[in-house]
Write a protein that binds this DNA or RNA. Sequence first.
DNA 1: ATCACGATTGGCAGCGCTGCCAATTTGGCT
DNA 2: AGCCAAATTGGCAGCGCTGCCAATCGTGAT
Lengths: 333, 333
Amino acid sequence: MPDPGSHAAVTISDVAREAGLGESTVSRVLRGRGAVSETARAKVTAAVAKLGYVPNRIAGTLASPGSRLIAFVIPSVTNIVFADVLSGAEAVLTERDRQAVFAVSGYDPTREERLIESMLAWRPSGLVVAGIEHTQRARTMMLGAGLRVVEIFDTDGTGLDLVVGFSNRAAGAASARHLVDRGRRRIGYVGHDIERDRRAGKRFEGFVTGLGEAGVSLVDREIISGHSSVEGGRIALAALVSRAPALDAVYFSNDDMALGGYFECLASGIAVPGRLALMGYNGLDVAQQAPLALTTIRTPRRRVGEMAARLLCTDADPGTYDLGFELLPGATV
Amino acid sequence: MPDPGSHAAVTISDVAREAGLGESTVSRVLRGRGAVSETARAKVTAAVAKLGYVPNRIAGTLASPGSRLIAFVIPSVTNIVFADVLSGAEAVLTERDRQAVFAVSGYDPTREERLIESMLAWRPSGLVVAGIEHTQRARTMMLGAGLRVVEIFDTDGTGLDLVVGFSNRAAGAASARHLVDRGRRRIGYVGHDIERDRRAGKRFEGFVTGLGEAGVSLVDREIISGHSSVEGGRIALAALVSRAPALDAVYFSNDDMALGGYFECLASGIAVPGRLALMGYNGLDVAQQAPLALTTIRTPRRRVGEMAARLLCTDADPGTYDLGFELLPGATV
DNA sequence: ATCACGATTGGCAGCGCTGCCAATTTGGCT
DNA sequence: AGCCAAATTGGCAGCGCTGCCAATCGTGAT
């Protein structure tokens, strides 16, 4: 059955012949633009159905200016944060007859650069990348490729073209204020590799600054080496607490880590929030369903994806679109 | 800056002129095939760098038989199960210079059909779809499109071309045996919409059959209306237990739901596994890190994606590739 | 019946690249 | 120096579709 190649493809000229019309007319009917008579439309529709014709978008794209491809170069697909973005964006794109293409950088700027370059070869009309930090060459390529670019999830700095997201620094600062407002003073931090995940780094900076403004300083911190994970949060919290038993609150780089920390507390009998308050970041569903809903900040991830897609479809003005975030009080602080 | 269109694209003939060579030679160098002298290679490389040339894959694809696009039509991106598949597949594809394209069906066969059709317009050389149940028209299109198709996650039935996954029926049956072996007899089920998620339906069938073979019958079940979620699992477990308080075990349609059930038990003081045993499906990391590791079945999701990609790249023989599953004993049974 | 004008329609030159084949060059031998 | 095969290289016809422009058709007004 599967016999690529031998499969004599039906082309638009086959349809034209079958319908007794010219190729241009068929093309007009298929794309629904330009004046076409009802009669012609009906003939074409019938011919298409009879021959089982499927238009070739590769050829269509080559022949007309501007493709219908939108490229995504993201750090990870399995991180729900980016999956949400893809999901929101895909919904909008499909509706507008655009096609999503993606590649995964693994939080590696060099790899990101390489992937952007190979994406450009598909001549997408838009490109979505994570964050505003990129290699110099990546920046140059994006600027010179004649396409629209959306940088997501980081409004702390200047973007190349369009930026959709929120301020990680502000989120970090808001978290600090929340903990201090609730009377916490001996605060620790549990995070993952901050060099690679620059957004997490900015949250941390904002957090420390926020504490400072309240006259509080960070007591201790524990950083795991790899990516964020529930397991990493669990292990790191255990380490941190045994090293600094007097802590009364821990801020995590995100909800995965925080959930791990919470599980560790449940397992080892540390009272939450009595003895220790826990705060995360992202507003993951699973963390909101735990016996105690996690105190965290919810980010409009899906909306970021939707807006990025929408902006790319409508040729919007360059600029930063800050979608903000929302602090979820929860029950762990 | 972003000024699509005005951007005078550099083409292969610009490179050829700059390098003082013919287009064919440039093309050969770029694709690394065919005999080319060192001198020519160097000239081309220099010209490419000088002009900032980026090959146009749209044109390349049109000109040669077989594209380098691999299409994915999956029920959801935010479901970690499919994100894992995409992730594994993407890694393999990038390495082999293929490009992943995707669309999300939302578990709706009609929508899946429509998306497959529009995917076919990009003339991918391979297509990955979830499950082996599709509309008749979708099946016909896939069969007649002259491309390779991989159906994933369901080996219970006959596929169109390649099938990569495992038996959901067997997984359900294995779960039933495990619960019975551990002495459970009054067993309930908590699941989500089984009509839409056919794989979950097959697990349920396998589970009920498995119980039957052990002389046990399902006591009661609670089905939530929407997609699976932690919250849904929590609510459903509460409902089920209040209706059938004598249950000594609950089997969930997957780990999300099971984790919700476990959270509910933690919150309402139901002893696990003392009074109630819980078992899920999928082997999610987060559920393995809970205070009690969830008893579940781990599926090789990432490997499914990798293998699907590999098979599509190597023009493998049609057939079913069963990657099996692994029962994780955990601590909730 | 005739003419002008808007509504439809068809023809065809590319889009940028690859595949095929012929032309040219190189190198080894006699 | 002369000859042949092997190694390189260039030319050019498409790939299937769209955009542009000219050709044709229809209609109401004259």
